[in-house]
Design a protein around this nucleic acid. Structure first.
Lengths: 229, 229
DNA sequence: ACCATTTTGTGCACGTGTTCACAATCGGGC
DNA sequence: GCCCGATTGTGAACACGTGCACAAAATGGT
């Protein structure tokens, strides 16, 4: 009889140090923020239990997440806060600098320009772009508003790697195409459209109305508890 | 010998009509938006292929998603656009009305108040709340700004079920506690903190800086292609 | 009436993510 | 030097999500 024991044990492309699961990557920024808070409070070490509680996850998940970046942490003691902050920052690539442009200076673009975390920790907003000539020249949160026609020039000059789209839906795909055309490889999209991009570019979408609709679904579900149908 | 054929086939709690996987729920709003666009263009029916392309997912995934709400769709033909819009709306609970309050009228609160999709499709923003007395009385996007002290009264009066937190991080937990205390069971949080809520309340978090950090990670990964370490 | 074509709905296998439980390991007291 | 309590790191089982591939079903032409 042929041994059917399954082939699942061969390390297809995991097991390489440096390969961090996507779900873990999404949680690392939360750990980082919580740890920064601890550091500012003068806490030197934390246990997985404490850190997990503060981050709103289970202790086991947290330990597995951290184990993907290496064996920092001391058995019987916990994790050194400052060391862990550094290791997570490095894993996320925050030890490098990324130039960001924000396209669209409506209400949302305005909010993003002033958002803490956009100007700090490795990120720098080099320009705000808008199609409305009336807005050009204005200065918001210390950043000058330029016309969207200058997009290509600005991206080239500052070696922008991340583009934030905060335009109306109708302009989003066009702006995205232009960003991609001049070498931007990461896009954060706030417009309520599905963007079409080539393979190597990755897009993250933040859609406020989608979040609301998901909440509505759960709200409805809670409402019909104990109902037959 | 005991039959070891695995017990995985008993319908633990799936298989109940009305049980929609979380991942599917998160995609339904996208399908809904795309379908609405098709409807406005006068398209009567769509195939899973067409719809999937427009929504940025694979055809198989789309069909499986839709199959969770029932067998709408005709073999050999496709899906009736208007009928599907209705079915998805119903599944998401959008045939009901949800009153929303937005707390925090900074840049972000401002943006949210004007956001299309917050005032439409089953959602209604009944008030904007802020702690700053100077802002009270102002009218933004047709909605009056009230003082945050009136939170309890407003929630009770309008039977608010969804609260949006757009305050600074320091105020978020306090506002959240007050919302929960007067019966709000769904919270959309834009403040960069992990909120502590009781079991039955669900929170969705939108964190702009986290999205940026995730992009930074992938950006870094793309940068060291072909590098040894 | 029948067949070819199209497209849905879904069983199945696979990969990813989560949770449990425990061995490995550290610091500290005596 | 040794034992004990504490805490990490991880193997293994389980749950969840995804994609393939195909049977089921509907339309339209002849």
């Amino acid at each position: 009889m042929v041994p059917l024991v399954s082939v699942t044990s061969l390390p297809s492309r995991s097991a390489r140090r440096g390969t961090i699961p996507e779900a873990t990557v999404a949680r690392l920024p939360v750990y980082l923020r919580v740890l920064t808070g601890f550091a500012e409070s003068g806490v030197a070490t934390v246990s997985s239990e404490t850190l997990a509680q503060a981050a709103g996850v289970g202790p086991a998940k947290l330990r597995k997440d951290l184990s993907h970046l290496g064996s920092y942490g001391t058995r019987g003691v916990g994790y050194d806060v400052e060391f862990l902050v550094y290791q997570i920052s490095r894993a996320l690539g925050l030890t490098q600098h990324y130039s960001v442009v924000i396209v669209g200076v409506g209400n949302l673009g305005h909010a993003l320009a002033g958002y803490a975390g956009f100007g700090s920790r490795g990120f720098g907003v080099v320009a705000l772009l808008d199609a409305d000539p009336a807005r050009v020249g204005e200065t918001i949160a210390g950043i000058e508003v330029r016309h969207v026609d200058d997009l290509e020039a600005i991206v080239a000059e500052h070696e922008v790697s991340i583009g934030v789209i905060a335009t109306p839906a109708s302009a989003a795909q066009d702006v995205c195409d232009r960003l991609v055309a001049c070498g931007v490889t990461s896009v954060l999209n706030f417009a309520p459209v599905v963007l079409n991009v080539p393979e190597q570019v990755d897009v993250r979408k933040v859609d406020l109305s989608i979040e609301l609709q998901i909440l509505a679904f759960h709200e409805q579900r809670k409402a019909l508890v104990g109902t037959g149908s």
